[in-house]
Design a protein around this nucleic acid. Structure first.
Length: 469
RNA sequence: GCUCCUGUAGUGUAGUCCGGUCAAGCAUUUAGGCCUUUCACGCCUGAGACUCGGGUUCGAAUCCCGACGGGAGCACCA
């Protein structure tokens, strides 16, 4: 049985990089008809928070990544870690270390001066001391010679010399287990067959493999994913805009689009760009993961999001639009059906935030017309046609695309002007700006009453302008 | 500093394992055009890359060596 796990630490929110890791784990488990486990690595009691746990859980559910087991909290498993630690101490696989923080610092500084890699020098490794009352940590007795070969599914065989590794702390002075120790026990206990995680863990892997050996358990199969960098090539951080996955929800992205964008960062299937979730699961494989770091590009995410907006079933987008209209405070009580808005605006908005923002004038009055648009479109020459248009639209009984179009066409032909000459002023009058969906669609969405009112206002503006000339 | 990973257009990638079909494909970005009553969508055309230097070979993006660049790790953080 293939079992993967996503093991975030709640010392921070769920960010894009972690989501990509989670996605690959999730996809691989699904692809193999295996299981996916969510484990919360909260051994750092100081920095782990309940809020971050919530952020992670919320993010996972928004993205639609379900798990077969979990969330399992490491803090619930301390007994188990202690059991192993005690056992290792008895078997001589681990030892007590009494070195103080100062001593360790001094040791590292010396190594640095000598141009060596900083690591624990094994001072207490063979100490025959048993006074358990003093403050001490437990260290793992790492083999001194030989090498560890990590057979990575992405990197190939990576070799580490044991003498490059040091005796890492597995239990702190306060009795809490450290990350590398807890991970190994968990992955073993939970029968994780494949560990898929960020590149930054590659250097931890040989020590973990050594601990699996000490445990007498086969290590899982590892895959180390290339990192995701910001668009400037530096590590992805707040500087690059949103990092918290929830920010992407607030910005109006569709979860499937985010997954689709992320899956193409470090994985590919020929030239294909767009994958629905089913396809992703079907086509995903570890052997197609590539090895170099990728830079995050919001341009492409935006493009993909629009692709999803344009091709999704309109009904499925209604909740999204509703959510974002509420978010930016649009009163939806008086205006068109959301589904009509979606159909009119989906190909001119990249996100739901943009769409909500763009359709505001269909629901609420606006105070100001763009001055540039006034100057260009609401000119005295158009006064008569606008008045004529107003009187016709006023008489319309069935406010439909066809009839609105007929009115506009009629006025255009009476005054012998082309559509653009009357369409743009009309658009500016009813929307306040110079870009909107086709004019009949726009008017239809805005409704007859509002259209007439706004037309009257525009006519007043034009009149005033004519007088002042 | 040491250890490990990595290097195809601005960005993501195909091709690299098993040299020739690659005078390097696709997508995004970008420039121009078409469509169009605006914006967008769509369509067409263009710009833009094998990090560099050696070597092997009839032939190298692909194999070998070196340099340089980028990233990560070296905690009683995860």
């Amino acid at each position: 049985m293939i079992r993967t796990r996503f093991a975030p630490s709640p010392t921070g929110v769920l960010h894009l990089g972690s989501v990509r890791t989670a996605l690959f784990c999730w996809l691989y488990a699904k692809h193999c008809d295996g299981q996916f486990v969510l484990r919360i690595e909260d051994t750092d009691k100081e920095r782990s928070t309940k809020e971050n746990v919530n952020a992670i859980l919320e993010g996972m559910s928004w993205l639609g990544m379900d798990y077969d087991e979990g969330p399992i909290f490491q803090t619930d498993r301390f007994e188990r870690y202690h059991e192993i630690a005690k056992n290792w101490l008895e078997l001589g696989k681990a030892y007590r270390c009494y070195c103080s923080k100062d001593e360790l610092d001094k040791m590292r500084n010396k190594q640095k001066e000598k141009g060596e890699k900083t690591r624990y020098n094994g001072h207490c490794r063979d100490l025959k001391r048993n006074d358990s009352k003093e403050g001490f940590v437990l260290r793992f007795k790492n083999p001194l010679s030989g090498k560890v070969v990590v057979n990575d599914q992405v990197r190939g065989e990576v070799e580490f010399e044991n003498h490059e590794l040091d005796d890492l702390v597995i239990v702190r002075t306060d009795g809490s287990p450290t990350y590398n120790f807890a991970v190994v026990i968990d992955d073993a206990d939970m029968n994780i067959s494949h560990v898929i995680r960020g590149d930054d863990h590659l250097n931890n892997t040989p020590r973990q493999i050594n601990m699996f050996k000490a445990l007498g358990v086969n290590a899982p199969i590892y895959s180390h994913l290339p990192m995701i960098l910001g668009d400037d090539g530096a590590k992805l951080s707040k500087r690059h805009g949103a990092v918290d996955i929830r920010d992407y929800r607030e910005q109006g992205f569709i979860p499937e689009a985010i997954l689709n964008y992320l899956v193409r960062l470090g994985w590919s299937y020929g030239d294909q760009e767009v994958f629905n979730t089913e396809e992703m699961i079907k086509l995903f494989d570890l052997s197609d993961i590539n090895q170099s770091a990728a830079a995050f590009s919001s341009d492409k995410l935006l493009w993909l999001n629009q692709e999803y907006m344009m091709h999704a079933r309109a009904e499925s987008l209604v909740p999204h639009l509703r959510y974002h209209m509420d978010l930016i405070g649009i009163d939806r009580s008086d205006g068109p059906e959301l589904i009509e808005v979606i159909e009119a605006y989906r190909e001119r908005a990249e996100t739901f935030t943009q769409m909500a923002d763009a359709c505001r004038y269909c629901y609420e009055e606006f105070d100001e017309i763009d001055p540039k648009a006034i100057k260009k479109q609401l000119r005295p020459v158009i006064l008569e046609p606008m008045i004529a248009l107003h009187s016709r639209l006023k008489l319309v009984e069935e406010w439909s695309h066809e009839i609105i179009n007929a009115c506009v066409n009629e006025v255009a032909s009476i005054f012998d002007i082309n559509m653009g000459k009357i369409g743009q002023p009309l658009r500016v009058a009813v929307t306040g700006i110079s870009a909107s969906p086709p004019i009949h669609v726009t008017l239809c969405l805005i409704g007859q009453e509002r259209t007439l009112k706004r037309l009257e206002r525009a006519i007043e503006i034009i009149k005033k302008r004519a007088e002042s000339n």
